[in-house]
């Protein structure tokens, strides 16, 4: 098991390095000169050249890349062209907001998707199943930004129950969390339902009934527990998607997270910030995939044995 984790981590590092190169070269190839963004175009060419030299934009591509990577290793992502601040301090202030928003959304999503998925599977073809499946279908099809806007129109503008945008109080979190959670709850619900339906037909479920366990115990302990293996794996793998999905939602609710920063930075071509955010998302993806594998191994002893080569 330990060996496996180390192997996967090493692979993850390789992946992150590859992504960092891609991100950097994409930004490098983008039209527009970073210097133009930093200062007015009315300054002389000489001053521009001086600026370019100061920030290292006159160096060859690979030197620039290696300098950047060197900096990144020390958590120095360069200086934001727009805010004239180190990127890391910009991010440091915003990452906690994004993490809070996404973990709350994930929690809410699971709180709805798991029990309802189980219920839909057990009461297959009942009105509650049909209702949940149809609603989740609609919610999955609706884009988060539209749903978010709808929530604002109804609950903030219309009813006035909740603040329109911002981040200061817990109440500010309710609408953005709802926008993210309810647009992603559908797929998790349907996966849970499909898994539960499959597990319900497993012979060990019949065994559980045959030994005299009450129905509730069978459903929660044997059926849900085994269905969770896949659900948890997929959920963990969906976290990076959720974070990228939150980008637009954050913008709508003027939420000061990473996503909002990323969007603003793309618009003004603030390359150092864009590079940093993309790299962080890449690292997060690698971590989440690894975490999902490790959790799966702990949930399913068969997989644990396979990846640790049978030794105990």
């Amino acid at each position: 098991m330990k060996e496996y984790i180390i192997k996967r981590l090493a692979l993850g590092v390789v992946l992150v390095v590859a992504v960092s190169f891609l991100v950097f070269s994409l930004m490098y190839m983008m039209p527009g000169d970073p210097i133009d963004i930093m200062i007015s175009d009315r300054v002389s060419e000489e001053t521009k050249a001086e600026m370019a030299h100061k920030y290292g934009y006159d160096l060859p591509f690979f030197t620039q890349y290696f300098n950047w990577v060197k900096g990144v290793c020390h958590l120095d992502f360069g200086t934001s062209a727009r805010y004239r601040q180190p990127v890391w301090s910009l991010l440091g202030a915003r990452i906690p907001y994004s993490l809070r928003l996404c973990s709350l959304s994930l929690l809410v999503e699971m709180l709805f998707a798991l029990p309802l998925g189980l219920l839909c599977a057990v009461k297959k073809d009942s009105w509650i199943d049909k209702f949940c499946v149809n609603v989740s279908l609609v919610l999955t099809a609706v884009p988060a930004f539209w749903f978010g806007t709808l929530l604002i129109v109804v609950f903030a503008v219309g009813l006035g129950w909740l603040p329109i945008s911002g981040y200061q109080t817990p109440a500010h979190y309710i609408l953005p969390v709802a926008a993210i959670a309810f647009t992603s709850v559908g797929s998790t619900l349907r996966i849970t339902k499909a898994e539960v339906l499959e597990v319900l037909h497993e012979k060990y479920v019949t065994t559980a009934y045959a030994k005299g366990l009450p129905r509730k115990r069978v459903l929660v302990k044997h059926v849900l527990r085994n269905s969770l293996i896949i659900v948890v794996t997929l959920t963990f793998m969906s976290i990076p998607w959720m974070i990228t999905g939150a980008v637009i939602t954050e913008k709508i609710f003027a939420f000061p997270g990473m996503g909002n920063l990323l969007l603003n930075s793309i618009v003004v071509q603030d390359m150092p910030v864009v590079q940093a955010v993309l790299l962080i998302i890449a690292i997060l993806t690698v971590i989440c995939n690894l975490a999902s594998d490790i959790i799966t191994a702990f949930l399913d002893p068969r997989i644990k044995d396979t990846i640790s080569g049978g030794e105990n």
């Binding site: 065994t207 559980a208 045959a210 030994k211 005299g212 009450p214 085994n226 002893p301």
Partner: peptide, 27 residues
């Protein structure tokens, strides 16, 4: 009723299945 049936299962009537390979919960 269901409750009585749950009491009969395992306690008064036990059942062994055809395929022991997938009759036990793998986890």
């Amino acid at each position: 009723d269901q409750e009585r049936m749950e009491h009969v299962r395992g306690k008064e009537i036990g059942m062994i299945f055809q395929n022991p390979l997938d009759s036990l919960n793998p986890v």
